[in-house]
Amino acid sequence: MKEAELRRLLAANLLCAGSIVLTALVPALFLDGFSVLGTHLTWLCICSVCVSVLNVTLCLILKPSPSSKRSSLSNKISRFLKCCIYFFMSCILFHAIIVLYGAPLIESVTETFLFAVLLSTFTTLQCLCLLGPNIQAWIRVFSRNGAMSIWENSLQITTTCSILGGWFGAFPIPLDWDRPWQVWPISCSLGATFGYMAGLIIAPLWIHWNRKQLTYKSR
């Protein structure tokens, strides 16, 4: 059971990572002059959309958190709307935090916001897919011994890695190398993306290595 689930997790994560690589390569075939650095905003949009679509699909297919009770249509719709609101709010919150960290306030609002959307995609959306619009569950997952399945463990790792990646991405900005990727927010979004991908790859491996220690509380 556990091995099979781990394999599913690995497949899903590799799919996600692969899709991000594809978003960097494929659009160049359709769009003139597309490049990750040159038309960064376009790439940000494409990447966010692809990752979210993929995640939602995966979530629907794999059903890592089977809902215990059947719910009515209206219930589902309200859940969906709630998810949308939560996602939007997390975008705003990330935007605010990024600005508080020193991003320009008025100039390049679009860039900052799209970066916030990307971060939300990598973090909030995963939480929404896995845990639903349920803050208490989120709080529980992100604490010591809070994970109840390998999916939640993976969630912990990818989320932390994305945010750390974004944080480290800010480091090269002040350097005087005059590289195109030092422009705000390219280094940060690239950092977050690399962090996310690293998290996707690390998570199954880490769980695999620590499978003896990981005992989940019964639900």
Partner: peptide, 23 residues
């Protein structure tokens, strides 16, 4: 602090069953 669970309400038996915690 959050990771160590210092921010959340100490889990009562009921909450523990649900797996939920709040601040």
């Amino acid at each position: 602090l959050h990771w160590d669970g210092h921010l959340t309400v100490p889990e009562g038996p009921k909450q523990q069953a649900l797996g939920f915690s709040s601040y």
